[in-house]
Nucleic acid binder design. Structure first.
Lengths: 161, 161
DNA sequence: ACGCTTTCTTGACAGGGTCAAGAGAAGTCG
DNA sequence: CGACTTCTCTTGACCCTGTCAAGAAAGCGT
């Protein structure tokens, strides 16, 4: 038995009550090494590059199992397919590029977030708040020299408050 | 509605640079009278109840045109089809029921939102912040007496910070 | 009323994801 | 170590939401 520090991934799976299989280890590996919040298809591609061939269905199954076990977090920006990240358990948000859909992490810079504790919840039992920032990624900023135009469906531009 | 000057909807359309048609008036009417954030299909059904028959495509077209003109706002909660609301121009957020997808408005109770001005934006040009609360609506609260269980993909439960 | 333009209808199509059944591994126990 | 049980993966069909395109129909300015 190799030392525990060699590869903690199998143990992570077992602790989560999941069986250790090649697809699962590969998905975990891909997500651990991707700050990019890949889509399921990107994950499938990366996984196949590591262990040969895996069905798309398996990837969906693995991701769902991981999400249910709390190993990964699924984010679904409007107009974009679901994306995944293995960074869980901390308070961070996401910023999504309007043009290309690229997604990055944004640290929650404040200790308290008054806006996230609404007084009027319409009778709902709130258990979670989710913040998504929208804008242009560095690449698309340079590319889109013309007017941003598509201001149409903006909930409320920053600065309007 | 035979009332003379009572209906401001045609004018709202003209001001937005849109032609006045029955489907558009009906969609506007439906949204004005729905605090429920209906989906496009629900809107189509309600519209047909008023003016007979309208193609699904027309509804999509109308909603897109309205969104582009700023007459309505489109929200796309994860795992739910797009929803629309005619309440625009103010700063409010949404709370979505995890079980049934019901959506309600949540007032932004604070004047300033520190969390919405991230210091580290990863080079993105942020133009908008979007907040979605997740929880259980009053109806589903009563129905789901058992354990909430599905805590898996929770970004960060309120109170954990 | 006329003609130009926008909008609606119809129908095909696509992306993303789910569902279901059976084959194949992982873990367990004797 | 080997059989057994259970969980996973593969395969293939299918669904939902939404988009694209072409032509018919209606709105609006003159």
């Amino acid at each position: 038995m190799p030392t525990a520090s060699a590869d903690p991934r199998p143990e992570r799976l077992r602790v989560a009550g999941l069986r250790v299989t090649a697809p699962r280890l590969a998905v975990l590996d891909v997500l651990d090494g991707s700050p990019e919040h890949p889509t399921s298809e990107q994950i499938a591609t990366a996984v196949r590059a590591r262990i040969g061939s895996v069905s798309t269905q398996a990837v969906y199954g693995v991701l769902d199992a991981f999400a249910a076990a709390g190993l990964v977090r699924r984010i679904e920006p409007a107009g974009s397919p679901a994306r995944y990240e293995s960074r869980v358990g901390d308070n961070h948000h996401h910023i999504v590029c309007r043009t290309c859909g690229a997604t990055a992490d944004v640290a929650c810079v404040v200790g308290a977030a008054p806006c996230l504790d609404p007084s009027d919840a319409a009778g709902f039992a709130i258990d979670q708040a989710e913040i998504t920032f929208w804008g242009l990624c560095p690449t698309c900023r340079g590319r889109t020299t013309a007017a941003p135009s598509g201001q149409g469906d903006a909930p409320w531009p920053i600065g309007d408050r």
